[in-house]
Write a protein that binds this DNA or RNA. Structure first.
Lengths: 338, 338
DNA sequence: CTGTTAGCGCATTCAA
DNA sequence: TTGAATGCGCTAACAG
C-alpha cells in the first residue's frame, strides 16, 4: 500500500547521473543524452517504478496538463456524450480531464471556477446556464463554451447549429402535414440554445398561413410534482384547443422528451397516432420508446473533440478572433411522426 | 484573460506582514494571529483576488485534496449515478473529483493508475473489469472498490448485495408463475457481480422442480451487429424450446435491457404479454419502455456517497480490516411481469 | 554531452 | 504573536 514514492533524485543516484539528465530523459530530450546514460536512466526508472510528480512539474513550469469540463448536470446524456469526445481528445494530447458538476447552481459554478484557478488548470470547457460574463472575464485561463453562448462574453463556442436544426425540424413537421404544433421548452432564461430553437420555430410557423404554433416553457425541476402536472395540463389544453387538426409536439431536449412521453401516456395519447412527436436530442432509448421517436441528433462526440482542439490552440497562445464552430443537426425520422 | 496570478508574497507585501502569517491565515490558524493582521490579510486577499496555489500546497505537504473515480464506461448510467453521490461527498469534504474513463481497456486502466500517482491523488474509487490484483497492490494510495471485487485483492468494497437482489428477483418471478426463465448476462469473465447474480439465479431455479432456467452470455460490444443477431437468436431458441410454458427474461443490466427490448420488438414479442421481463438496474426509461419494466433498483447515490466516506477514513489512516458495504436492491414491479 | 544551481508557491520548523 | 529560513520535486538557465 504505502510504498514511499521515489523522486528524481533517487533515479539520478541509482543511475549514477545528475538529476538534470533524468529530467532531460523524462522530457524526451534524448538528443542531449548518451546511449549509456539513457540506458542507465531507463533501467533505474523501471526498478524504482518511478513516476514524475506532476505537482512539482506544474509548480515549476506553470503548466499542469489539466483541463476542466464544467457542466450543469451530469445526468444529462448530452454532456456525457460530449465528455467522451473530450476525454479522447485529452488523452490524445496528454491532458487529463477534471469534471466539475455544478448541479445548475451558480454558486457551485463560482466555487469550481475558483478551485480550477487553484489547480493551475490550463483551460476550461464550459457548459453553463447562468454564468455571467463578469465572473468569467478575469479567469486566468482560456475558455471554450460548449453549446451555449454567454451574453457579453466573447469566447470560442462549439455546438449545434440550432437555427439550422430547428429549421429542418419545423419544416419537416409542416411538410408532413401537421397543422398545430406545440413546442415544449424548459425555462428559456436567456439561454442561447433555447432561444435559437424557439425563435426559429416561431418564425417558420408564422410564415405558414394555415398552421398554428405554440411555445410553452416548463420549470426545470422534473422531480417537482408540479412539473408533471403542468406538463399534462398544457398538452391537454393544447389538444382541446386544436381539436380536429393534425397535432404534433416538439420537445426541446432529451429530458423533456422523457417527461412528455410519460405525460402523453397518462393522457392516453399514442405517439404517432393521436399526436406527432419530434425530439431535440437523440438518446439511446429514442429508438424504442413509443415505437420510435423522430429526433434531431447532434454530433456530440465530435463537438467534444473539436472543443478540446479549439481550447488547445488557445492554450498554445492563439490570438485568433473568437470562433463559432457549429455543427448541423441530423433529422432521424421514426414512427412518432408517421 | 491572462491576469497574472498573485502569490502568497503579493498578499504578504500588500498586507505588510510576513508570508508565514498569510499561510497561517489560509490554514485557519486564527488563534495565532492578531486581529489587526487578520484584517489586513483578509483585505489584501480580496483586493488581489488571491487563490492559494494547490500545486504548491500539494507539493509541500503531500496531500493534493484530489481523489479519482476510475470507471470502465462513462456511458453507463450506473456509474454516473454513483458519481453524483461521490461528487456531493467530495464537495462536502473539500475534495475534488478526477474522473477517469477507461473505456473498458486494461491499458487505459494502467495508464490512469500511473497518472494518478503523478498527481498525488490521495485515494481512488475503482469500478473495474479487468484489473488484476498485482497492478493494484503497489499503488501508493488507498483504494475502495465499487460494485465489483478484484480477485486476490483485499480492499474495501461498496456495492449492491447481489445475492439478495438476485434472490428477490428470481423468487418473485417464480412466485409470479413463470415457468421458464432466461437469464441474459454479459460475458461473465470472472466479474463478481455477474457471478453472484447468475449463480444465485441458477441455485434457486434448481431448487424448484417444475421450473427451468437458462443462462446465456452475450458479448460486450453492443455495436457489433453480431451482438443483436445472437441476442435475437437466443431468445427465439428459448421460446421455441419452451413452447407452452410461461416464459420470462431477466437481463443483467441496463444496457442489456435496452438491447433485449429491441430484440423482442423485432421478434414481435410483447413484454408482459408474450413474455415476462425483469431488469437489473432501473434506468429512468425503465418506467416507460414496453409499458414499464419490472426492475431491481440500486441505491446508487448512496453507494457513491458511502464509498467516499470509506475512502476518506482510509486516507485519514484507518487500519481497520477491509470492509464490505453491501446495499439491498429494491424490486420495482411494473407491467412487464404482469 | 553533463552536472550545478536557482527558484516555482507554499507550509513548517525555529528563533525572536 | 510574528517572521526568516528551509525544502517539497522538478525544470531551466548556465557552466564545464
Amino acid at each position: 500500500m504505502s510504498v514511499k514514492k521515489s523522486t528524481i533524485i533517487d533515479v539520478a543516484n541509482l543511475a549514477k547521473v545528475g538529476k538534470t539528465s533524468v529530467s532531460r530523459y523524462l522530457n524526451g530530450d534524448f538528443d542531449a543524452l548518451s546511449d549509456s546514460i539513457k540506458e542507465r536512466i531507463s533501467h533505474a526508472i523501471k526498478t524504482l517504478d518511478y513516476r514524475p510528480n506532476q505537482m512539482a512539474r506544474s509548480l515549476k513550469r506553470g503548466s499542469s496538463k489539466l483541463i476542466a469540463f464544467v457542466i450543469p448536470d451530469i445526468t444529462n446524456p448530452y454532456s456525457i456524450e460530449v465528455m467522451q469526445g473530450l476525454e479522447k481528445a485529452c488523452q490524445d494530447h496528454g491532458y487529463t480531464l477534471l469534471v466539475c458538476n455544478t448541479n445548475k447552481s451558480s454558486e457551485r459554478e463560482q466555487y469550481y471556477l475558483q478551485l480550477l484557478v487553484s489547480y493551475n488548470v490550463e483551460g476550461v470547457l464550459f457548459h453553463t446556464i447562468k454564468a455571467s460574463a463578469n465572473s468569467l472575464k478575469h479567469c486566468p485561463f482560456p475558455m471554450v463554451l460548449i453549446d451555449r453562448r454567454v451574453k457579453n462574453f466573447n469566447a470560442d463556442i462549439v455546438g449545434l447549429d440550432n437555427i439550422q436544426s430547428s429549421t429542418i425540424a419545423t419544416n419537416y413537421l409542416i411538410d408532413a402535414g401537421f397543422e398545430a404544433i406545440l413546442f415544449i421548452s424548459e425555462a428559456i432564461n436567456g439561454i442561447s440554445t433555447r432561444l435559437d430553437r424557439v425563435n426559429t420555430f416561431k418564425k417558420l410557423i408564422r410564415a405558414h398561413k394555415n398552421r398554428v404554433g405554440k411555445v410553452i416553457e416548463i420549470t426545470e425541476d422534473s422531480h417537482d410534482p408540479a412539473y408533471q402536472l403542468s406538463l399534462e395540463q398544457h398538452i391537454d389544453d393544447f389538444c382541446k384547443t386544436h381539436r380536429g387538426m393534425r397535432k404534433a409536439i416538439v420537445s426541446i431536449n432529451g429530458s423533456v422528451t422523457l417527461n412528455t412521453v410519460l405525460a402523453l401516456k397518462r393522457l392516453n395519447l399514442v405517439c404517432g397516432k393521436d399526436i406527432g412527436f419530434l425530439s431535440f436530442d437523440d438518446p439511446q432509448w429514442a429508438a424504442i420508446i413509443s415505437d420510435g421517436i423522430t429526433s434531431i441528433r447532434q454530433p456530440t462526440y465530435q463537438i467534444g473533440y473539436s472543443a478540446f482542439e479549439l481550447l488547445l490552440s488557445r492554450i498554445n497562445g492563439s490570438k485568433a478572433p473568437a470562433q463559432e464552430l457549429l455543427y448541423s443537426g441530423e433529422l432521424i425520422i421514426r414512427n412518432s411522426t408517421k
